[in-house]
Amino acid sequence: MLNKLREQTVFKGNWLLSLLVSVGVWQCSVPVMGQMLLPYTPQLNSEQLEQQGLEVAEEAAQLIRFQQHDLALSRAKLAVQLAPNKYQPWFILGTLYIIKQELEPGVEALEKALVLEPEEVGIKFTLGNAYFQQGKYQQAATALEEGLEIKADVPSAQFDLGNAYFKLGRMAEAIAVYQKAVAQQEEFWPAVNNIGLIKYEQGNISSAIEHWQKALEIDEEQAEPILALGVALYIQGQKEEGLKLGEAALELDSNYGEIQHLKDNLWGEKLIKDTQTFFTTPQMQGILAQLEKDS
């Protein structure tokens, strides 16, 4: 599980959108201009332009909440032109680019926002997620660590930090921060799931199974822990039960029949190898062939 804030990360529901709720700093109003019989160009001072820019940024944030991303992007671009020295328009613009998977301009905008407001945790968390998607795992970890030093009780950011540690090979630290996420939010099944992924790579299959079972106790309709559990049980000799779970997982989400999708979701080499063996069974071959036919 990578950041199913992308389903979640990404992002997972999308936790970036929830961060925008905390950027409620637009308390200013734009002066009302008098009606004129003839067209004219009003002379606005810099303070008025900034006020307008912040209001346009607020419009963009509202549009994001309603999934109107293209409209929000045009508003955000205008907002940074009107208020280039305020962090909020850059933060919203960067977030929009990340949501649209345009990572390079997204990171550039977020870095500008961070220069303007170095202690804003939302920017640090969003940058951490964006760096991770770029494969810059150390930069991701640093940004997330800095944000969590300011605001420690954000499970989604703890989860992202755990993922960064995972990719850096810092497995003990990854488990510790996943556990913090679960302590903050007991139903945060992706963190429980990812502990299982680590345990499997460490050769502790029984512990991995326990964590995937716990993840399914939280949400029984999640394909990832169902498939992982199926593979583990199959490898341990419980073949019938394992195959049954594998079929159920792919019925829920056929993407998990693709090895690259599993790699993208942090499945390690050992689990990938065992999954490939699992997929070569006649029963799973039949299911995968049918899924390909239906696609």
Rank of each mutant, 00 (worst) to 15 (best):
residue 141 A to P: 09
residue 80 V to D: 04
residue 174 A to S: 08
residue 114 L to T: 02
residue 127 L to M: 07
residue 135 G to P: 10
residue 171 M to K: 07
residue 98 I to G: 01
residue 103 L to I: 03
residue 112 K to M: 11
residue 129 N to P: 00
residue 161 L to E: 13
residue 78 L to S: 12
residue 97 Y to R: 02
residue 186 E to I: 12
residue 102 E to M: 06
residue 113 A to C: 09
residue 162 G to T: 06
residue 144 L to K: 08
residue 174 A to R: 02
residue 97 Y to C: 02
residue 183 A to H: 11
residue 96 L to R: 01
residue 172 A to Y: 00
residue 135 G to H: 07
residue 154 V to K: 10
residue 86 K to W: 06
residue 87 Y to R: 08
residue 133 Q to P: 00
residue 130 A to D: 00
residue 117 E to M: 11
residue 131 Y to M: 07
residue 146 E to G: 08
residue 131 Y to P: 08
residue 115 V to Y: 13
residue 96 L to E: 04
residue 171 M to R: 05
residue 94 G to K: 01
residue 113 A to G: 09
residue 116 L to N: 04
residue 129 N to A: 15
residue 168 L to I: 01
residue 182 V to S: 05
residue 180 K to H: 12
residue 117 E to L: 05
residue 123 I to T: 05
residue 117 E to R: 10
residue 137 Y to K: 09
residue 148 L to F: 02
residue 141 A to M: 12
residue 166 F to W: 12
residue 135 G to T: 07
residue 125 F to Q: 10
residue 134 Q to L: 14
residue 90 W to H: 08
residue 173 E to H: 01
residue 139 Q to F: 14
residue 111 E to M: 11
residue 168 L to A: 09
residue 106 G to C: 01
residue 142 T to F: 14
residue 80 V to W: 06
residue 152 A to W: 14
residue 77 K to T: 07
residue 169 G to R: 04
residue 103 L to P: 02
residue 98 I to H: 01
residue 158 Q to R: 15
residue 169 G to M: 06
residue 137 Y to D: 13
residue 102 E to L: 09
residue 188 F to I: 07
residue 80 V to A: 04
residue 116 L to R: 01
residue 82 L to G: 03
residue 157 A to T: 10
residue 156 S to Y: 13
residue 75 R to M: 03
residue 123 I to E: 09
residue 160 D to I: 15
residue 127 L to S: 02
residue 89 P to W: 00
residue 123 I to M: 04
residue 164 A to C: 11
residue 110 L to D: 00
residue 110 L to I: 07
residue 109 A to F: 07
residue 150 I to H: 11
residue 117 E to G: 09
residue 177 V to I: 15
residue 131 Y to F: 15
residue 184 Q to P: 00
residue 125 F to I: 07
residue 145 E to T: 13
residue 103 L to G: 00
residue 173 E to M: 03
residue 162 G to R: 03
residue 159 F to I: 05
residue 137 Y to G: 08
residue 183 A to G: 12
residue 157 A to D: 12
residue 158 Q to L: 15
residue 109 A to G: 02
residue 77 K to F: 07
residue 126 T to F: 10
residue 165 Y to L: 05
residue 175 I to D: 04
residue 180 K to A: 15
residue 145 E to S: 13
residue 90 W to K: 00
residue 165 Y to C: 06
residue 132 F to C: 03
residue 100 K to L: 05
residue 184 Q to N: 13
